[in-house]
């Protein structure tokens, strides 16, 4: 007797769970506003990428052309495929020799967007941008210098 009750409760629960699944998919079938597909080339003008999207590595600059990069080279060390090269120079401030960034070279063509550089930067100098249309005819143009010419180190950054 116990087995018979078990048998019918099995059938009942199976039907119930199947109907639950069909209710979920049926809801999506009739509610087209849930569709997540973006029709890319047509909606280019209105396309908004997500906050977390990793399009390219950037170095944010303030309005007075200041960045936060101290040229420590931690991002270069952490990059798994060598897409970052740090070139530094020295500058004498108050009689002391100080290392500053000359060029932060970023090879977009080698980048896998793992995010280790952004994560490990001690002064939060790097960030991800949302631009993803990187196709070019000359691959040389994929090598970028992230610090803008004439930019200086933000005074608030501690070394």
């Amino acid at each position: 007797m116990k087995e018979i009750i078990q048998y019918f409760s099995d059938v009942f629960h199976a039907v119930k769970s199947l109907l639950t699944g069909m209710r979920v998919t049926g809801y999506y079938f009739f509610h087209h506003k849930e569709i997540v597909t973006q029709e890319y080339p047509e909606n280019r003008a209105t396309l908004k990428m997500f906050e977390r999207f990793k399009g390219e590595v950037l170095m944010p600059h303030t309005e007075s052309n200041e960045h936060k990069c101290t040229g420590c080279g931690i991002c270069e060390m952490n990059c798994p495929n060598g897409s970052i090269e740090i070139l530094t120079t020295f500058e004498t401030v108050d009689g002391k020799k100080k290392k500053i960034i000359d060029k932060h070279i970023y090879h977009l063509s080698m980048c896998t967007f793992c995010g280790l550089c952004v994560k490990t930067c001690p002064s939060d100098a790097l960030a991800f941008g949302n631009d993803f249309e990187h196709a070019v005819f000359d691959r040389q143009s994929l090598t970028k210098v992230l610090n803008k010419p004439g930019s200086t180190l933000n005074k608030e950054v501690k070394e």
């Binding site: 998919t25 999506y28 079938f29 849930e34 569709i35 997540v36 597909t37 029709e39």
Partner: peptide, 13 residues
């Protein structure tokens, strides 16, 4: 089309 709508996609367009 039906499977696209069920999976929150648009299907052939």
């Amino acid at each position: 089309k039906v499977c696209a709508f069920i999976q929150c996609r648009l299907g052939p367009r």
